[in-house]
Design a protein around this nucleic acid. Structure first.
Length: 287
DNA sequence: GTTACGACCTGCGAGC
DNA sequence: TGCTCGCAGGTCGTAA
C-alpha cells in the first residue's frame, strides 16, 4: 500500500527517467481513475500531449508532474494498489493498466491500479501550506514530516486539541500527511503509545515523540525502497521494497515483540486494524 | 466545527 | 469443486 516512503521511492525513480522528457501520446480507458476531472479521460488526452515534464513534486502520498510551460500539473494518487512503471513504449499491457504516457525517448509511463482507489487529475497549481505551489486539488493536504515546512511542535499541539484516537489522527491527511496504516502502527510502537489513546489525554512530549518516530521510520523505509507485502507495491522498475522485514508490529500478529517478547496483538481502531504490543503499549483503562 | 462510520473497489483466502 | 463471505485500506461523503 503506497504511503509516503513508497510514493517517494516512485518519485525518485521517475526523476531518473522522466525529467525533461516530453509526452508525445496518451492512451487510457475507464472512468474511475480519472473521476476527478470534469471531462474524465478526455481532459488527459487533450492536455498532456506536448507537455514537457519539468519537475516531480510530492506532498504526503500525493505526487505531481510539473510541466515546463503550464500552470497546471498532473496530480497522481496511488490509492491502495496504484503503480507507476517505466517501460519501453511497445511493452506488453498489464491487465490492470489504466493509462499510458508515451515519452519522446521511446519509453512510456504506465499507471496500473488493481483496486481502483487511485486517481489521476489535471489540476491548477496554487499557493498552499508554507507558501509552496501545490495542486488546487490537494490544498487540503497538510505538510508531511519530511518537508522543511513541517512544524512538529505545532502539529503536536494540533493533535492535543482533539478528542479522537491518536491512531486515527495520524491517518488524517489534513493533520499530518504521508502516514498510512503501516507507518502509524510502527511509529506508535516505537513511541510506546497505544493507538486507542485519546490525543487530548497525552502529554505534548509524547505526541512530539510519536511524530518524530513517524519521520524516522519513514526515512528508514525510503532507504530500503519502501514496504512490499505483495505484488501491489513495486517501484518504477517493477522491483519490491525491502522494509517489510524491518517492521516491528504491522503484519506480525502473534509474533513476539522485539522489545519484550510479548505476542503482538491486533484490534480495530475506528474501522482500521491496529497492531501493537500489549506490554510496551498498554491499552487505555476501560478498553 | 468535530467526530464516527460506511461506501467505494478488487483479489485472495477461509469456510462450507 | 465451486460458491459465498469477510478482509485489506486511502479517501470522501454523510449523519449525528
Amino acid at each position: 500500500m503506497p504511503e509516503l516512503p513508497e510514493v517517494e521511492t516512485i518519485r525518485l525513480g521517475l526523476a531518473e527517467h522522466a525529467l525533461g522528457r516530453k509526452i508525445t501520446r496518451v492512451t487510457g480507458s475507464g472512468r474511475r481513475l480519472v473521476r476527478n476531472n470534469p471531462h474524465g479521460m478526455q481532459d488527459l488526452l487533450e492536455f498532456l500531449p506536448g507537455q514537457q515534464i519539468r519537475e516531480l513534486e510530492r506532498r504526503g502520498k500525493y505526487l505531481w508532474l510539473v510541466f515546463a510551460d503550464a500552470d497546471h500539473c498532473l496530480l497522481v494518487h496511488l490509492g491502495m494498489s496504484g503503480q507507476v512503471l517505466w517501460n519501453r513504449a511497445e511493452s506488453e499491457v498489464n491487465r490492470h493498466e489504466r493509462v499510458r504516457l508515451y515519452l519522446d525517448d521511446g519509453s512510456a509511463l504506465c499507471f496500473n491500479d488493481q483496486r481502483m482507489f487511485g486517481a489521476l487529475t489535471i489540476s491548477e497549481l496554487v499557493e498552499g501550506t508554507g507558501g509552496r505551489l501545490v495542486p488546487a486539488a490537494a490544498t487540503h493536504i497538510a505538510a508531511d514530516p519530511l518537508e522543511p515546512a513541517f512544524d512538529v511542535q505545532a502539529v503536536a499541539k494540533r493533535l492535543r486539541r482533539s478528542t479522537r484516537h491518536l491512531k486515527t489522527l495520524l491517518l488524517d491527511q489534513q493533520v499530518v500527511s504521508g502516514i498510512g496504516n503501516i507507518y502509524a502502527d510502527e511509529a506508535l510502537h516505537r513511541s510506546r503509545v497505544h493507538g486507542l489513546r485519546r490525543a487530548e489525554k497525552l502529554p505534548l512530549t509524547m505526541l512530539v515523540d510519536t511524530l518524530t518516530e513517524a519521520e524516522a521510520v519513514m526515512r528508514e523505509s525510503i532507504a530500503q525502497g519502501g514496504t512490499s507485502f505483495d505484488e501491489l507495491y513495486v517501484d518504477t522498475a517493477g522491483n519490491p521494497g525491502y522494509f517489510a522485514r524491518s517492521l516491528r508490529v504491522y503484519g506480525r500478529e502473534g509474533e513476539p515483540c522485539e522489545t519484550c517478547g510479548t505476542p503482538i496483538q491486533k484490534v480495530q481502531v475506528d474501522g482500521r486494524s491496529h497492531h501493537y504490543c500489549p506490554q510496551c503499549q498498554p491499552r487505555p483503562r476501560g478498553k
